[in-house]
């Protein structure tokens, strides 16, 4: 039985302690980061003014590089053809599914757009041991994004990664061999890390997870869970 989600305490007042990596920020600023990882970045940025500042600096780098690039001449009449189009109505902007009005959301708006609503509307799939997941539909080759819910006080089975795993905490907190991770914190793991996160008592720990390769669970329970986790 999992506890009902309440919005109490959804506001974060302290900046996260685990931040975006330089790699992620650079690729996000350059526009070359995949959509799934970009969703993690944008969600973290909502919670983290210092990473927003780093992101703004890299955008400014992009602006400076644009000013410094050697221009390529336009074809004759290029300006005139654009001036002639200024009064045409804009093609309709890509429609974001309208988000229901929500003054006290549980998770950042950028994520709610992908969930089609707030966290309390998510359909969970049981993995066993009280652990639940919910896929986030996204057409990104080689990546998978999902929500993971670990009951308060419970552990996620030992697992290792063949590739990278990004975990952003949305609710609750967990501790593992690296440290404590709470709302807004980003945990980045690669294949060299074998870890066992344990959710803190009090509140279920809900995370946004992006993986780029199958997760292998280790240990006897993990071997069973592996059968269920089709990554």
């Amino acid at each position: 039985m999992t506890a009902a989600l309440t919005s109490g305490g959804a506001m974060r007042t302290v900046e996260p302690s685990h931040h975006l990596s330089d790699d992620m920020l650079l690729d996000y600023a350059a526009g070359s980061l995949d959509e799934a990882t970009s969703l993690i970045v944008a969600t973290h940025l909502t919670y983290c003014p210092s990473c927003r500042k780093r992101a703004a600096e890299l955008d400014a780098l992009g602006g400076t590089l644009l000013r410094d690039v050697a221009p390529v001449s336009l074809s004759k009449g290029s300006l005139e053809s654009v001036l002639a189009r200024l009064d045409q109505p804009a093609e309709p902007a890509p429609v974001h599914a309208a988000l229901p009005a929500n003054d006290n959301p549980l998770v950042p708006a950028v994520l709610r757009r992908y969930l089609g609503g707030d966290l309390d509307a998510v359909t969970w799939k049981n993995l066993g041991m009280g652990v639940q997941t919910s896929e986030i539909a996204m057409n990104v080759e080689g990546k998978r994004a999902f929500l993971l819910r670990v009951p308060a006080g419970k552990a996620v089975p030992h697992h290792t990664h063949d590739g990278n795993e990004f975990v952003l905490i949305l609710r609750g907190a967990y501790n593992d061999e690296i440290g404590r991770f709470a709302r807004g914190d980003l945990a980045i793991s690669d294949g060299s890390i074998k870890h066992k996160p344990v959710a803190e008592p009090g509140e279920d720990c809900i995370c946004l997870v992006v993986v780029d390769a199958p997760i292998r669970l280790t240990g006897p329970i993990g071997a069973i869970l592996n059968l269920f986790v089709k990554v």
């Binding site: 959804a10 506001m11 974060r12 996000y28 526009g31 980061l33 959509e35 970009s38 969703l39 970045v41 944008a42 969600t43 940025l45 909502t46 919670y47 927003r52 929500n102 003054d103 006290n104 959301p105 998770v107 950042p108 708006a109 950028v110 757009r113 992908y114």
Partner: peptide
Amino acid sequence: RPELDPDDPL
């Protein structure tokens, strides 16, 4: 390219 919502209450 998901971007944060500048009006997000969070």
